[in-house]
Amino acid sequence: MHQQLLLVTGKGGVGKSAVSAALAIEAARRGQKVLAIGMVEKRGLAAHLGVESLSYDATEVRPGVFALGIERPAALDEYLRIVLRVPKLSRIGPVARAFDALASAAPGIRETVTMGKVLFETRTNNWDLVVADAPPSGAIGSHIRAPKTVAELVGAGKVREQTRWMEDLMGDRARTGLVMVTLAEELPTVETAETLKWISEEGLIGVAEVITNRILEPLGARIPTDLSTPIGAAAALHGGIFQEQQRWLAELPDRGRELPYLFGVTGPVEVAERIADELEQR
């Protein structure tokens, strides 16, 4: 993947945060300066990068990997300063509060603030790669559509002026790409296919890759007839899951790298590092 900004999404529980962390770790191993961003739910990304929590200011969490977590009040403050050209030292509290109240009722505004932070960071060119652990696929639409929604909602004004470059950067396939993480199971496959469909119809962002997680290798032997022994039962389970996975993999309209099931791996950091190893090899 050559893009400068990767937005990582997927159905809840598929390993989106682990893959986000792994993409960042793998790029840093290649010598890139990487920023990993937790957009809404930040605990997963923090755990996979081996830190307690993510602060709003980018902090180096491991060699070459910087991380930040978007906090809405701070992001709103920064957004308003940029939009309204208000200097850092002046008070902005009452404006931010009023704006936040409006934002909770007006579609797209809150999401524009969150997406704005990700896009601002990409635009600075401080980073070779920005990896955003984005909201799950059920909620990603309102974020991707946010600049467009806001442009339609407000006829004029400074907020609207800011939406154009956001749309342009997000829609630039050379610079921005969506990474869909999925599992070879029914619900994640259905949701991934649906997401890819509207993403392609609306054309607001390009798809960088569809990564399938926790894929089993073929058993490499016949399943024994006696399933009462652990050997037989484990073989039958493996074979059954493998078959089911192949069935759902075939339903995916677009397939990129496959990541293996990690047997017996406990810690979130180890999970991210092992996935980074796999990404490197594939």
């Binding site: 308003l80 939009v83 309204l84 009452p94 404006v95 509060r97 009023a98 704006f99 409006l102 407000v154 006829g155 004029a156 004004g157 400074k158 907020v159 609207r160």
Partner: peptide, 12 residues
């Protein structure tokens, strides 16, 4: 004043 600024930012 705060609302006025917001009104300018959001227009319309």
């Amino acid at each position: 004043p705060a609302l006025r600024i917001v009104d300018i930012a959001l227009g319309s």
